[in-house]
């Protein structure tokens, strides 16, 4: 996988006004090129309100602050809202310790070719940061509308979901958790996710994560245990993934990751 992120901020006399961003990645041995983000954000004073148009990360649950796309474990978004990024409009901002986001998108996700007007999918999230250094972040989210089925853009699934999420920074411990409930395509749905990263020694983290989902009477799960080693120039992640409710129960995976950044 190879990714490219480009970001440019434009300002007027009274501050930053417009940020344009694009994030594309070549995946699966360069067979797929996926455009994760292509958006323009107009920023209000001090970011109390911002309007984003284009393709952006949907502000549901932990996705607002954490995207597991490049991790060896999965978060809940493929099961809950069905995708991590979508095309549309978003109003978001920060008010003191609170942050909020409201988005109206097409419901196609990032893997389908865009069309117009789309199915129609709305998401809202309200978050609060707690503690002297904002070490606890809590959020409540809701989503309602239609999204594309996984392999058929024009085949729509109804979704109505609510969830709470939490992120904890506690010294060597970084914890994330999310719980959701609602319905998908008329069937009841429930899902939970938790992940902990623990700094064992300098440059070495232990990672444990788990997901559990139930849609109607069907269960899905995944448990991951791994390590992340961070020498000076890159990150190596590796681990073991166990799935109880699935055909492939065991998987061992490794990842070599390097981030380059340049200012032009």
């Amino acid at each position: 996988m190879l990714g490219l992120l480009v970001r440019k901020t434009l300002a007027d006399d009274k501050g930053d006004r417009l940020t344009v961003a694009a994030l594309a990645e070549a995946e699966h041995n360069f067979e797929n090129i996926l455009l994760h983000e292509l958006s323009a954000k107009y920023k209000g004073p001090l970011g109390r309100w911002n309007i984003t148009a284009g393709r952006f990360i949907v502000p549901y649950g932990l996705l607002k602050t954490f995207d597991a796309t490049r991790q060896l474990y999965e978060s809940l978004c493929p099961g809950t809202i069905g995708f991590h990024a979508d095309n549309g409009l978003m109003l978001s901002g920060v008010l003191g310790r609170f942050d909020y986001a409201l988005s109206v998108t097409q419901g196609y996700g990032a893997h389908h070719v865009p069309g117009f007007p789309g199915h129609g999918f709305g998401v809202a999230r309200l978050g609060i940061a707690v503690g002297e250094t904002d070490e606890i972040i809590l959020g409540i989210s809701g989503a309602y509308g239609e999204t594309s089925a996984r392999h058929h853009r024009d085949s729509a699934l109804d979704r109505g979901l609510g969830g709470i999420d939490a992120t904890l920074y506690a010294g060597p411990v970084l914890g994330r958790a999310e719980v959701n409930a609602g319905f998908i395509n008329g069937a009841s749905f429930g899902a939970g996710f938790a992940a902990i990263e623990y700094a064992i020694v300098p440059r070495l983290d232990a990672i444990v994560s788990g997901t559990l989902m139930r849609k109607d009477k069907e269960w899905n799960d995944a448990t991951f245990v791994g390590l992340a080693f961070k020498p000076k120039w890159f990150t190596i992640r590796g681990g073991y993934r166990y799935v109880h409710y699935g055909e492939i129960h065991n998987r061992v995976s490794f990842q070599l990751y390097r981030l380059f950044s340049f200012a032009l």
Partner: peptide
């Protein structure tokens, strides 16, 4: 704004 409560905006 924790450090500059009187600020109305910022420029990068």
């Amino acid at each position: 704004t924790r450090i500059f409560p009187g600020a109305k905006d910022y420029k990068t």
